[in-house]
Amino acid sequence: MKKLVLVAAMAAALSTTAVKAEDYVIDIEGQHAFVQFKISHLGYSWLLGEFNDFEGTFSYDEANPAAASVNVTIDTASIDSNHKERDEHLRSDDFLAVEQYPEATFTSTSYTPNEDGSAILAGDLTLRGVTKPIEIMVNEIGAGPDPWGGFRRGFEGSVTLTLADFGIDYNLGPAAKTVDLYLSIEGVRQ
Results as ranks from 00 to 15, higher is better:
S45H: 12
Q100N: 14
G43E: 08
V72F: 12
K38E: 15
D27K: 04
L127K: 13
E85T: 13
T105Y: 05
E50I: 01
G43K: 03
L4M: 11
T178Y: 03
I26D: 01
V130E: 12
V25C: 05
V7C: 08
Y60C: 00
I74P: 02
P147R: 10
V130D: 04
G144I: 06
F106R: 04
L163P: 02
E55I: 00
E186Q: 09
A66T: 13
I185L: 07
D53Y: 11
P174R: 15
E135D: 12
P147T: 02
S92G: 05
E140R: 15
S110H: 13
A104S: 09
A104N: 04
G167E: 09
L127V: 07
D146K: 08
Q36Y: 00
P147K: 05
K177Q: 15
L161Y: 11
R86M: 01
A66G: 10
A8N: 06
I39S: 09
E55Y: 01
A8Y: 11
Y170F: 15
K2G: 15
G150C: 03
V5I: 05
T76H: 11
A63H: 06
N114E: 15
W46K: 12
H89I: 01
N71P: 00
L42Y: 04
D94Y: 06
P113S: 04
A175C: 03
R91L: 02
D146C: 02
I26F: 04
I74G: 01
L181K: 00
N82G: 13
E186Y: 02
G142H: 09
A164S: 13
K2S: 10
I168V: 05
A143L: 01
G123K: 09
R91N: 12
I74E: 05
L121T: 05
M10N: 05
G157H: 01
H41W: 06
H83S: 09
T73L: 11
T126R: 11
Y170C: 00
L96F: 14
A68W: 04
I136C: 02
L181N: 00
L125Y: 09
K84F: 07
A176F: 03
G142K: 14
E50H: 05
G167A: 10
F34R: 08
I134T: 01
F166R: 04
Q31C: 08
D124Q: 07
P65I: 07
R91T: 05
S15M: 14
Y111D: 00
A176P: 02
Y182N: 08
I39G: 10
V25D: 12
N71K: 12
E156S: 11
E88L: 11
T105N: 11
T131W: 14
G173I: 12
E88P: 00
A63C: 09
I141F: 00
E88M: 06
A176C: 10
T16W: 15
I168Q: 13
Y101G: 02
G154Q: 02
G117D: 09
N171C: 06
T57H: 10
E85Q: 14
A67P: 01
E29C: 02
F166G: 06
D124W: 09
L121R: 06
L96T: 09
F155E: 03
G150L: 03
T160A: 13
S59H: 15
A21Q: 06
V98H: 13
N52Q: 15
N52V: 12
N114Y: 12
D80R: 04
